[in-house]
């Protein structure tokens, strides 16, 4: 059963120092979580996993464009009505719809990817939280896989 040790820090440098020490003590990067009310760009934690938001945006764009082309071409052919002497499939006009749906796909896919990767909107997403974050404090959670690590974490995080 993993144990969780947490501590509250007043300033970013102190929290970062504690994080570095935990890493030296053999904690995995993923096992340490820093909560803060503004991004800490120097933290190691975020670099741990690569974000796929950009790739998902491109994927969504491609899917959006494809569905736009299919939608416009198939349904217009089904209607098959001539207007203004224009061809049934008018690429110039349909291109605009394709552009908008490309963008829509990119927007929706990057949003979905962001929500998934950051674990937002899930049941119990707010477990392991301390509202002192909102006061500007930095909170560190350390997941410990063994009693030895619990001991180390408690020592580093200054709790006995």
């Amino acid at each position: 059963m993993p144990n969780r040790v947490h501590a509250i820090f007043d300033s970013v440098p102190k929290a970062l120092a504690a994080q570095a020490e935990l890493l030296r003590e053999g904690f995995e990067r993923k096992a340490i979580t820093l909560l803060s009310n503004e991004p800490i760009h120097q933290s190691e934690e975020a670099g741990g996993s690569r974000s796929h938001i950009g790739s998902f945006a491109i994927l969504g764009g491609i899917l959006g464009a494809t569905s736009a082309v299919l939608l416009t071409v198939i349904t217009t052919k089904r209607v098959g009505v001539v207007t203004g002497g224009m061809p049934i499939v008018s690429p110039w006009a349909f291109g605009i719809i394709a552009f908008e749906l490309t963008m829509l796909g990119a927007i929706l896919f990057s949003l979905a990817c962001m929500l998934y990767e950051s674990g937002l909107g899930r049941r119990g997403a707010l477990k392991n939280y301390d509202s002192s974050v909102s006061e500007g404090k930095i909170v560190i959670f350390a997941d410990c896989s063994s009693d030895l690590l619990v001991e180390k974490a408690e020592r580093v995080l200054g709790k006995g």
Partner: peptide, 8 residues
């Protein structure tokens, strides 16, 4: 949405 403010 259960925002905690983790660095991820």
């Amino acid at each position: 949405l259960g925002w905690r403010g983790t660095q991820v």
